[in-house]
């Protein structure tokens, strides 16, 4: 009886899953397939599902059109630095907010949360003036330090840490472990999934940063990948094949990160939503 029921519902479930997978993957497929099309076939009617003939030249041409090797190194360096900063500082702050009682805790948490609510476009000019005071325009510091920690990361870590039983920490304290040791040796290992999630999201945001680098970077040697991509969309008319090719290359680091961390990462976002 149960088997039949299951069988019957599967007739709906699997087609539904296929539709979901199709919708999820379609833009990726379209990006990659267009990067192999000739420019004149790009908007062909009726449209070309598979590139014919295959254009192999878009990738090398796009890569050479700008100094993308340098831009990738810059983007990777900036994104990794911001990610590491967030992992450390947000986990410390989240631990503090989730597991300690002290004066002003809730108001501090609210203040931290409030930083998530104003778009960067608004605070950009005041922020730029501050960076200028530090003499950080056109430096890696200017790209990294303002984003070293972010309200979202603190929020995520706090939510996750709320789910860690207090008894565990109390037991360690009874054994005479120092507060820092408790953080480093007990709390951190338990946080791996949340850290993976935070890592992937911070990396994505940092890899995505566009307007901020646009404003503070004027040296070619400091440009990041999105700035390079935007130059493809110049007023000369877009080389669509190259744009799609460079977009695909620019997505690759995110995809790799996702596939390597997938397991703990999905677990990480997931547990954020849980409260004991």
């Amino acid at each position: 009886m149960k088997n039949i029921l299951r069988h019957r519902s599967n007739l709906i479930v699997y087609p539904l899953l296929l539709v979901v997978a199709f919708i999820g993957l379609l833009p990726y497929y379209w990006m990659v397939s267009c990067s192999f099309k000739l420019n004149e076939n790009m908007f062909a009617y009726p449209l070309q599902w598979f590139p014919d003939p295959i254009n192999w030249l878009a990738y090398p041409a796009a890569w050479k059109a700008q100094d993308f090797t340098r831009y990738f190194v810059n983007s990777a360096f900036v994104a990794i630095a911001i990610t590491l900063g967030n992992l450390l500082l947000a986990s410390l702050a989240g631990y503090s907010l989730a597991k300690f009682q002290y004066k002003g805790r809730n108001i501090l948490f609210l203040l931290i949360l409030s930083t998530m609510m104003l778009p960067l476009e608004v605070t950009m000019v005041p922020l730029f003036l501050i960076i200028k005071q530090f003499d950080w325009a056109n430096t890696y510091e200017g790209l990294i330090v303002p984003f070293f920690v972010d309200g979202f990361g603190v929020f995520l870590m706090r939510q996750y840490l709320l789910s860690i039983p207090k008894d565990l920490l109390e037991a360690a304290r009874m054994d005479g472990a120092s507060e820092f040791r408790i953080y480093a040796q007990i709390v951190m290992p338990l946080c791996k999934p949340a850290l993976a999630a935070l890592g992937v999201f911070t990396f994505r945001e940092a890899w995505d940063m566009y307007i901020w680098p646009l404003i503070i970077v004027t040296k070619d040697s400091l440009k990041t990948v999105p700035l390079g991509i935007s130059l493809f969309m110049s007023n000369f008319g877009v080389a669509w094949d190259q744009l799609m090719a460079i977009a695909a290359i620019g997505t690759l680091p995110m995809l790799l990160l996702f596939f390597f961390l997938q397991r703990s990462f999905i677990q990480g976002i997931a547990i954020t939503g849980l409260k004991e």
Partner: peptide, 23 residues
């Protein structure tokens, strides 16, 4: 414990104060 909690929260507050609250 409260001191420890303040201490580990401090770097976050410092950075956010300078680069978020202030703007």
């Amino acid at each position: 414990q409260a001191l420890f909690a303040y201490a580990i929260l401090f770097p976050t507050i410092a950075i956010l104060a300078l680069f978020r609250f202030f703007p």
